[in-house]
Design a protein around this nucleic acid. Structure first.
Length: 731
RNA sequence: GGGCGAUUAGCUCAGUUGGUUAGAGCGUCUCGUUUACACCGAGAAGGUCGGGGGUUCGAGCCCCUCAUCGCCUACCA
């Protein structure tokens, strides 16, 4: 054995062996331990979050496999609709190909080519980390059998009356040319100008001098600069006033009480629109009076619905102004129009003042372009109603849907699965987060105007499904649905994932599984900590604050990376990434290697005539020496504590204890003290103790552990063969 | 605006129901080349556990309050 552990050589050799198809198929007879890996985007590359999550899962997989349970760890990738399409679009532009200039079919071909070329990258990266997934089948959400699952699921929801089409204001990405669900919208703080615009009130309708007086003396409106009477609205989006249908004020607002029901003349357009009262208006913001554009704002759309206002679309899906009449604005970009309107209003002295504010700009989570809310016909899943599910289940269906489920909404099913304790979150606090969100869940917009994805299985539809619709089926579509689900493996045991997809993914998997299978998808949801960079900020590729786990693996080894991440993973606390712990991991691997080297030497130098047959993991009790006996009891305690920790997902605590024991107890004390012992028993003891300690280490640092076990085992074989030979010669 | 979490050694973090002198890794300092390992060993320095108040025989841990930071969420136009 070399003086220093060569992780590179060892890991290179082992991970290829482990990536073989049948290497990790479930074996054994106990209660199966089943996980589905959160499928990474097919175009993605491994980031620190993946590395941590994969490490957690692999620790569990290897630990329970060691315990003799059949472990099934389902693996695969997600087609990731919008993310992939955006990525391939960009790649094509570099080649001089524009998406708009080629047919849908050609574009799809390019995406499949891309998938073929790059789709395996993330899989290889998972393997380099040592992930012991069941590689015999690498699922993909666009596989034929998966497509079948999606179609079947859609049909079920549809037949139950849970899918409907509606014309609604949705989040629209002008660049991606698709709708987005609320969860796919991100927010970016931005400085903006808040224009205070005077909308003239139709004076003839003011019934009494009193009202005029009231209006004039209104605090926010002074000093008056013209002879007219106005109501002042505040907006950052002047261009949308072309589509205003009302001005809304809070019914409790004394300033405007008497104006409710009056009419204002919308500047520029000259249209007459009412002043309405709506309790959603915040009296403290701006002037307390808000212009209502039902077609281009989520809140306004709701007000519009309540107040039965007309929805006037003035921005088209390409982000251009579309107006009837008023040629001067037609086809302008949004920002151009915004300025032009302001110019015009200034000319008419209708701008009262301009405020600088900071507000949240909503942007597309994939391309970061500004979101334009606009009306659009889309497909939705009804989350809140149960009476829609009037049609009874298909008698031929093998789905065993319990009767009471037919009277519950998806929201209720999702909440009940967690409330009842059937699905448990670890740490527990995420249950509340989940339930709070579920409680207020809105209907889910599932149609996307993309090319890459599952086509909505309705005649004539060209839209595809939200990528999360298909991932919602992941836990069972990978285990046999819609054909027969292997009941042995369902529900799965643990789902380990990141907190930022609790809503996007976990929640949808739960209600989908309960609705479609009549069974929860997993018993436990482990939400691992989030990794931040050293400044405590989010790691982000686009910000250049990310750390590439593969580079770390190259530098320190996969074992070391696993060690470093796991040591920091103590549960509740989020992780500020720091390389020092990975350095410690590399040292630890080396330490293990050297302990093995020492024991190996002892075995080799042994003059023993008869070495007891030892196996890896042997529970053989050694000898009379009470010190050794006691020490093995100490190890047993460590084993118990590790088991307890891993049952509670206390990965960091478990590893820390093992690490400390091996280094500062076993190596620093026990081995040092044993050096004085010349007896044969010492060797038996060291070998036994160490092999048990290696078992404890193996789930955490599988590469170095496997290597050492091999060496020690083969050394033992040699020695045993020798002693057998001697025994035979003597007899 | 709501919710959650954090604040412990120079840095990154442990600290399991409140119980003697608060721990680890890295870093720093001293010594040590003893044939497993210098990616090592022996030892040392370094913390009024964010501030303030309270409960208790006893508080890093429980309660209140303030401060700072972070995350999630929301319709502030």
């Amino acid at each position: 054995m070399e003086k220093q552990y060569n992780f590179k050589e060892n890991e290179e050799q082992l991970y290829k062996e482990w990536a073989k198809k049948d290497a990790w198929e479930p074996k054994g007879t106990g209660k199966p331990f089943v996980m589905v890996i959160p499928p990474p985007n097919v175009t993605g590359s491994l980031h620190m979050g993946h590395a941590l999550n994969t490490t957690c899962q692999d620790i569990l997989a290897r630990y329970y496999r060691q315990k003799g349970r059949p472990v099934k760890w389902v693996v695969g990738t997600d087609h990731a609709g919008i993310a992939t399409q955006t990525k391939v679009e960009k790649a094509l532009i570099k080649k001089g190909i524009k998406k708009n200039e080629i047919s849908k079919e050609e574009f799809l071909k390019h995406i499949w080519e891309w998938k073929k070329e790059h789709g395996d990258q993330i899989i290889h990266q998972l393997q380099r980390l040592g992930a012991s997934c069941d590689w015999s089948k690498i699922h993909f959400t666009m596989d034929d059998d998966y497509q079948k699952a999606v179609k079947t699921a859609f049909k079920h929801f549809y037949d139950q009356g849970l899918i409907y089409q509606a014309d609604r204001v949705v989040n629209w990405c002008v660049r991606c040319q698709t709708s987005l669900s609320d969860l796919e919208v991100e927010y970016r703080p931005e400085k903006a100008k808040l224009w205070h615009i005077k909308y003239p009130v139709k004076i003839s309708e003011l019934r009494s001098q009193n009202q005029v007086q009231n209006l004039k003396s209104s605090k926010n409106h002074e000093p008056r600069t013209t002879n007219h009477d106005y109501i002042v609205v505040a907006t950052t989006r002047s261009e949308t006033m072309l589509g205003d249908s009302a001005v809304a004020v809070n019914p409790k607002d004394e300033r405007y009480k008497n104006l409710i029901g009056q009419t204002v003349i919308l500047p520029i357009t000259g249209r007459e629109i009412p002043i309405v009262s709506d309790s959603s208006v915040d009296m403290k913001f701006g002037t307390g009076a808000v212009k209502v554009t039902p077609a281009h704002d989520m809140l306004d759309s709701e007000i519009g619905e309540r107040q039965k206002l007309e929805s006037i679309q003035v921005i088209d899906k390409y982000g251009k102004i579309m107006t009837e009449g008023m040629q001067e604005f037609r086809n302008l970009g949004i920002k151009e129009c915004r300025e032009k309107i302001i110019e015009e209003l200034e000319k008419q002295s209708l701008i009262e003042k301009v405020e600088e504010i900071e507000h949240n700009l909503s942007v597309c989570y994939r391309c970061e372009r500004e979101i334009e809310p606009m009306p659009s016909k889309q497909w939705f899943i009804d989350m809140n109603h149960s009476n829609a599910k009037c049609k009874m289940q298909n008698a031929k269906s093998q789905l065993k849907i319990k009767n009471d489920q037919n009277s519950k909404s998806l929201k209720e099913l999702g909440m009940e699965a967690v409330r009842s304790g059937k699905v448990q979150f670890v740490p527990k606090k995420w249950e509340k987060v989940y339930l709070d969100w579920m409680e207020n869940v809105k209907d889910w917009c599932i149609s996307r105007q993309l090319i890459w994805g599952h086509k909505i299985p309705i005649e004539g539809e060209t839209d595809v499904l939200d990528t999360w619709f298909s991932s919602a089926l992941w836990s069972f579509a990978t285990l046999g649905y819609p054909e027969k689900i292997d009941e042995k493996y369902y529900p799965t045991t643990v789902l380990s994932t990141a907190r930022d997809i609790i809503y996007l993914w976990v929640s949808r998997m739960i209600f989908s599984s309960v609705e479609l299978i009549g069974e929860i998808p997993f018993e436990k949801v482990y939400i691992h900590p989030t990794i931040y960079n050293q400044e405590g900020k989010r790691m982000s590729k686009s910000l250049g604050t990310g750390v590439d786990p593969i580079e770390l693996i190259d530098k320190y080894g996969a074992d070391a990376v696993r060690f470093g991440l796991t040591l920091l993973n103590t549960g509740v606390q989020d992780i500020k990434f720091n390389e020092v712990h990975i350095v410690a991991g590399r040292k630890f691997a080396n330490k293990l290697h050297n302990i093995a080297r020492y024991i190996d030497l002892q075995i080799q130098n042994s003059e023993s005539r008869v070495l007891p047959t030892l196996r890896s993991g042997s529970r053989l009790n050694v000898g009379k020496n009470p010190i050794y006996k006691k020490y093995l009891e100490k190890i047993e305690k460590l084993e118990t504590e590790t088991e307890r920790d891993l049952e509670q997902f206390r990965f960091g605590q478990a590893l820390e204890r093992i690490y400390h024991f091996i280094w500062h107890d076993f190596a620093d004390k026990m081995i040092e003290e044993s050096k004085a012992d010349e007896s044969e028993e010492k060797i038996v003891f060291l070998q036994t103790a160490f092999s048990r300690l290696l078992d404890l280490v193996e789930p955490f640092l599988p590469f170095v552990s496997a290597k050492i076990k091999n060496i020690l085992n083969s050394e033992l074989k040699i020695q045993n063969a020798k002693s057998q030979f001697r025994v035979q010669n003597h007899s």
